[in-house]
């Protein structure tokens, strides 16, 4: 691996208070502990990535932030507000949007209706404008606009899931494994889109990935999660250079 690695520099908002702050969060499924006290911060304008193996608890953290399941101890704060015990739909209405694990496209709704679902909070004021924006970002979706979600290919569904999340004009975009099962070309396309949104519009992104190389390259900062605990954190550059990270997540790698 001698290729020149082009990583992101720190954005401006990093010094201020975090937009999302997860403190000492423990989450259980019944009596089985999934998160064993997790601390994560996301500052405005940042792209933060969380990498880790299958079953490390990455998706559980994403869902815990949304209160489904709720953290048993610890706090989740968004923009200075404690959202740990808030119902899921009220958290969503704070304009946190998620493209979840498994994409979860509504299969019997058209692409356009799926986008409407994403926008439904904002009484559809900017709807037409935003749809146009999504169609420019993901031209494939325009071709499929009247098609039902369940008939799309995996890559198209992924694009739709991200576009649906973006329709809320989110203050924080959370993406759970956007590259899973997709062709490298589409992965690149999706990651480019995320980078552009961050650079041009200052969109804050929290990204969960198994595809560590691309994710760390894209992110300003990163966390490594092992067995429900954050074991390492640092800038994307640092983590990419870290020998442990390289050994565990990069070599024999995904790229």
């Amino acid at each position: 691996m001698t290729a020149v690695i082009e990583t992101q520099d720190m954005p401006v908002g990093h010094q201020g208070p975090p937009l999302l702050s997860v403190r000492g969060v423990k989450t259980y499924y019944g009596n089985i502990i999934a998160l064993k006290g997790v601390d994560v911060d996301v500052h405005p304008g940042e792209i933060v990535t969380l990498i880790g193996a299958n079953g490390a608890g990455k998706s559980t953290l994403m869902m815990t932030i949304f209160g489904s399941p709720q953290a048993r101890t610890g706090t989740v704060t968004f923009d200075g507000r404690d959202i740990t015990r808030m119902p899921t739909h009220e958290i969503a209405r704070l304009r946190i949007a998620q493209s979840p694990e498994g994409r979860r496209i509504f299969p019997r709704m058209t692409v356009l209706e799926n986008l409407q679902m994403g926008a439904s909070l904002d009484n559809l004021r900017y709807f037409d404008e935003d749809v146009e924006r999504m169609f420019t970002l993901f031209p494939r979706l325009k071709e499929r606009a009247a098609q039902r979600g369940g008939t799309l290919s995996g890559g198209e569904q992924q694009m739709l899931a991200i576009a649906r999340a973006l329709m809320a004009r989110p203050r924080l975009l959370m993406l759970d494994e956007p590259s899973l099962g997709l062709a490298p070309l589409i992965v690149k396309q999706i990651f480019d889109a995320i980078r552009d949104l961050n650079r041009n519009e200052g969109l804050t992104v929290f990204l969960v990935e198994q595809n560590a190389f691309h994710a760390l390259k894209l992110a300003h900062r990163g966390y490594v999660m092992v067995n429900g605990l954050v074991t390492m954190s640092g800038t994307g550059k640092e983590l990419l250079a870290n020998p442990e990270v390289r050994a565990a997540y990069l070599e024999g790698g995904h790229h």
């Binding site: 739909h89 969503a92 979840p100 709704m109 679902m117 439904s120 809320a168």
Partner: peptide, 21 residues
């Protein structure tokens, strides 16, 4: 109506999108 159909197809996702299920 859209919220109703969304709940029928995937309640958890509907909640993630701000629908009061």
């Amino acid at each position: 109506g859209r919220a109703q159909r969304a709940c029928e197809q995937d309640r958890k996702m509907a909640a993630l999108l701000g629908v009061n299920v």
